[in-house]
Each structure stands twice: as C-alpha cells, then as structure tokens.
Design a binder for these strands. Sequence first.
DNA 1: CTTTTCGAAACTTTCGAAAAAATGTTTACA
DNA 2: TGTAAACATTTTTTCGAAAGTTTCGAAAAG
Lengths: 255, 255
Amino acid sequence: MAKILKMRPGDNDRSAATTAPQDVLREDAVTFDVLRRMREDILCCVLKPDQRLRFGELRQRYDTSVGTLREALSHLVSEGLARTEAGRGFTVAPISLADFLDLSELRVYLETRTLADAIRHGTDAWEAEIVSSYFLLSKLSAPRPDDPVGVKREWGKRHKRFHDSLVATCTSPWSLHFRSELFDQARRYHWLTMIHARSRRRNEHLDLRDAVLARDVDLACGLIEKHIRTTVEQAASEVPGLTMETARGARRRKG
Amino acid sequence: MAKILKMRPGDNDRSAATTAPQDVLREDAVTFDVLRRMREDILCCVLKPDQRLRFGELRQRYDTSVGTLREALSHLVSEGLARTEAGRGFTVAPISLADFLDLSELRVYLETRTLADAIRHGTDAWEAEIVSSYFLLSKLSAPRPDDPVGVKREWGKRHKRFHDSLVATCTSPWSLHFRSELFDQARRYHWLTMIHARSRRRNEHLDLRDAVLARDVDLACGLIEKHIRTTVEQAASEVPGLTMETARGARRRKG
DNA sequence: CTTTTCGAAACTTTCGAAAAAATGTTTACA
DNA sequence: TGTAAACATTTTTTCGAAAGTTTCGAAAAG
C-alpha cells in the first residue's frame, strides 16, 4: 500500500510534511539539549573549573528558562561536573591532580573489567564498530596546542566513540554506567593536556584496537591500563597549575 | 558575643524574627527535602518498581510545585532510581534479579576497596563511630516480615549508618561516591527481602565490626564479600517474583 | 469484525514572574 | 577610625499557568 505517501488533508505550510507522531522518536527535548551543551562546555573548559554559574548569564548563553537550567544543572551535579550549595547557586566542579589520580585509579579497574567482559561477548557488529570508529579517529592526528578548537572538539568526540565501541558488548550495565561517567570526568583533564602538551605520544590506540580484535584479554587490559596511567603522568608533568591542592584558592571574587 | 540573640528592629510581622542571614546554614531547601523523601519512598518501595510517576499525584503527596518535582525526579534519574522517556514522564526504575546480581558484583569490589583503604587510614574517631553505630544497629534485631514499617525503616537507617561508618576514612572520594550509590540501590532489594524473608541469618555485622576494629584487612574484606553475596542469594531464593527477566513486559503499547 | 481517523482529555514540558535569600554598599554612631 | 546596623542590589528559589504531546475512546471506513 502507498500508505506512507498519504498526506493529511489539513497540511498547508506550517509543518513541513512531518511524519506521524508515533514515528517521531523525540530525543531532542530542550532540557536534554541544554544538558548536553552544558556538559560539553564543562568538559571542554569553556566553563572553567570553579567558575560560578549564574542564572542570568546562563539564560543568555543557552537561551532558555531558569527552570530548564536548574534541571540541567541538577543533572550535572549528580554527574560530578558541577557543585551546589543551597542558597548559593552552582559552580563548575573544581579540578586537581589529586582528583585526576583518584578517578584514574578507579578507571583502570572499570575499563579493564568492562573491556575483558566485552571481548568475551564480542560480536561481528562490535568488531565492525571498532574498526569503523578507529578509522575515524585515525583520520585526525592527536591535536596539538595550536590546532583550532573545532579540531580538538571533533577529536574528543571520535576518541570517546572509539573507547565506547571497545566496551560496547560488556554485559554489566552498572559497570558501563560508572565507566562512562569516569570517562567524561577524565575528558576535562584530557582537554587541558591537549591545550598544553608539548610531548607527543605514539599511537597507543592502534595497539589497543589490534589486541581487542585479536581477543587477547590480558594484552588489551594491560594496554588500556598503561594508556590511562600514561595520560595521568603526561597531565601531571605538562599541565601548568594542576597541583595536588584543590583549585579552591581562586574562589575569592575579583579583588 | 551575644550576636545570636540580636534581633533586627525593623521586623514587623512578615518575616518572623529570623536570625541574621550569615548565621543560618540552610540545609533544608525544599528541593533537597523533596528529593530526600522521594528517594526514601523508592528505596522502601512505597513507590513501587515500574510505577508511573504522574505529576498530579506527586504534587499532592509531596505538596510542592511541578518545577521542584521535576528537579528532584531529574536527580533520581541520574542516580538510577527513576527512568524517563522524553514526553512520556517518569517511572520508578525497574528491578530484577539480573540487576541485583550485576550491582552486587560491583559492590563487592567497591566495598572491599573502600574498606581496605579505610582500615589503613583509620583513626580513633573512626573507631568510635563504628562502635557507636554498631551499638545502635544491634539494639534493633533484624526486622521480620510482620514487624511494623517504622521499625523496618529505622533498621534500614541504622544499617546504612553502620556500613557508612566502616568506610568513612577511605581516601578515595570517587570510590566512596559510587559505593554509596550502589549501596542505596541495594537497599531496594534489602527492603523486599525484609518483607518476604523466612530464614534468619546470624549476626554477620558483629564479626565484621570486630575484624575492622582489629584492622584485619583480609578478614574484613572477606566477611563483607560474603555478606553481600549471601544477601543476593537470600533475595533470589526468598523474594517471590524476583526473576532474571526485567519486569518490562507490561510496557508494550495498546495492542 | 477489524482497522483507521479524528477529537477530547490527561499529562508533560517549558516559561517567566513573584518570593526569599544572599551579597554588597552606605550610613549612623561611638 | 572602626564597627555594625539598615538599605539597596543582585541572585537564587519556588511556584502556577500557558503551550505542546501523548493517550484514550468513540465514530467512520474498509
């Protein structure tokens, strides 16, 4: 039947031939969009650590209402990307080397745990996505400090997609959930490293990809552990101002 | 100085003699209170798994506005205690044996990790709080199915406080954070077990307390691992309707 | 008798204004 | 000159209503 081609008689001009309500899978709710954008801005340090998040400014920047912003901020607090003190509004979560060390230690466990499980449950589709996402990542060489922001952002996205693809077939939802949260946290530090890093690292992702595709659990887990630890060391030595003390000193206003 | 007693002269009737703004430490924001109450209601299955959370009913139950409810619900989604699908509102997160098994496996790691670290960094104050919270817990014997709800709730609180006290001196904020989230998740299953359990377990908490106070890392970790695993087994065998399949069957649309 | 279409009711989402609280500044007084 | 209260401003928190979706059920078409 040519059911699909049918149009409703009343369709004049306002809604440009949209599909029927049931066919539309709305993943584009305003709240989600604002949340996504804010998260990205924190991850990429557009909103800087410890920065105060005033509703006035945010309302302008994201062109939305207070209520929606509150909801998004509330989410970010749960994710550990923002802080709030009742009556005193929201701030971007602080960063510190101590925090990076702590979350990286836990990441080592969660990444190896999920990766090992994913390899054991790997499928053809899983392998295909790994090949595909690695290809996309390799098209962009690791960004250098003077690369434009757009390139850094795109690399960040592809980097995340690649790492996500590795563990996609892991059968533990909770492990995947926490892994994902920690990966996002780490992205803030990766961004700082990208901006400041002088040294260049060899392509660890290729080795990782091959070990995973070869279903070598021990090798793959060893590689990702080293990958995480190396990243911390690089950040510790090359990102200026990333000290063990929390960055709360700057909390004082203007003066 | 008697600063606290001072009152502002201009206070007529509208604001009933509040203390100076700086002295008041507001931890009682409405949003937090609503969030706390909703979380408790989900944990204690007053709001049942998969139950639809309509704003109309919630507004009545918690006596607050839609916006505030939305913010609280948003938080609960981040914590994994609720679900939402854009345009279709919120539901209480489903439960299943598979979920309990999954989260318990991760709990074993996080509880042992945090406990080992806490023991190594234990202080006198830490020991004191363990003694104190164990004492309070032991005053209430493990609730039986026919005990009143109030007793079960109180026992749940003391149980949480005891377990929190064990790991209080752990130095890894991220581990503590995730441990706490998983502990809350497990509480939903503990509640179901309390309601249905026929068998009684011997007091595993006393052994745990003593092992921890004796700073015996291996023994303590072994005990808590067994504690978690036994809890899962008890739930699996004694809670009716806790199957491997998720309870999503009823979700299908009209026909 | 089944399937589709339409419209009303229920519910969710979004918004901006009013209330409450915190911060900053000035003024009064010793 | 220092202290603290009173005032003014900024910012956060809370609320309810308007706009937009989805769901449900009845009527029409196949």
